[in-house]
Design a protein around this nucleic acid. Structure first.
Length: 157
DNA sequence: GCCAACGTTGGC
DNA sequence: GCCAACGTTGGC
């Protein structure tokens, strides 16, 4: 018996990787490499197949939640940590005992209308949302079920 | 482009 | 173990 799906949010800068890139990817699937923050990594390790993920565009105009993806592969070592040429190369990470993991996600749907950050800020019930916390920079974060429901409802308008 | 908030690093 | 310096994130 598998547990109920959990909810998450992942950020990307669309100039680096956008929801359109995901839509064009083979099987609309991508590995989420390059995360180099311990808390974000730990959240990825807690993800299970079937968990649902909000996709957020940061450094965008406007910053917005743009769609939904689904976890299709659970955490495994991120090879870019060992690639000297990679922007996220980590010389301290040991391939025999990898520090950094990634997951694979598949696009579920792209919202017809992205939900801009300022709309989220004004929505009742989202004040505790990690994304909206002042100074929050976590690129992978949990979303509460009630928050998930509210956000998806906003996407329908 | 600015800058506040945050995480990490390293000297002590 | 403290904390200043530094690099990064991300809204504005």
């Amino acid at each position: 018996m598998s547990r109920a799906p959990q909810y998450w949010l992942m950020k990307s800068e669309p100039s680096a990787f956008s929801i359109d890139d995901l839509q064009c990817a083979p099987a609309r699937t991508t590995c989420w490499d390059g995360v180099r923050n311990y808390q974000a990594r730990n959240y990825m390790r807690a993800m299970r197949r079937g968990d649902q993920v909000l996709l957020h565009h940061s450094h965008a105009d406007p910053p917005a939640v743009v769609g939904v993806a689904e976890v299709v592969r659970e955490a495994y070592p991120d090879p870019t940590a060992f690639d000297r040429k990679d922007k996220h190369f980590d010389p301290k990470s040991n391939p025999a005992k990898p520090t950094w993991d990634m997951v694979e996600i598949r696009l579920v749907r792209k919202f017809a209308h992205p939900i801009p950050l300022d709309l989220l800020k004004r929505a009742p019930g989202l004040t505790r949302m990690e994304l909206l916390r002042r100074g929050s920079r976590l690129s992978v974060q949990p979303v509460r079920p009630d928050e998930w429901k509210i956000v998806l409802k906003l996407a329908q308008k």
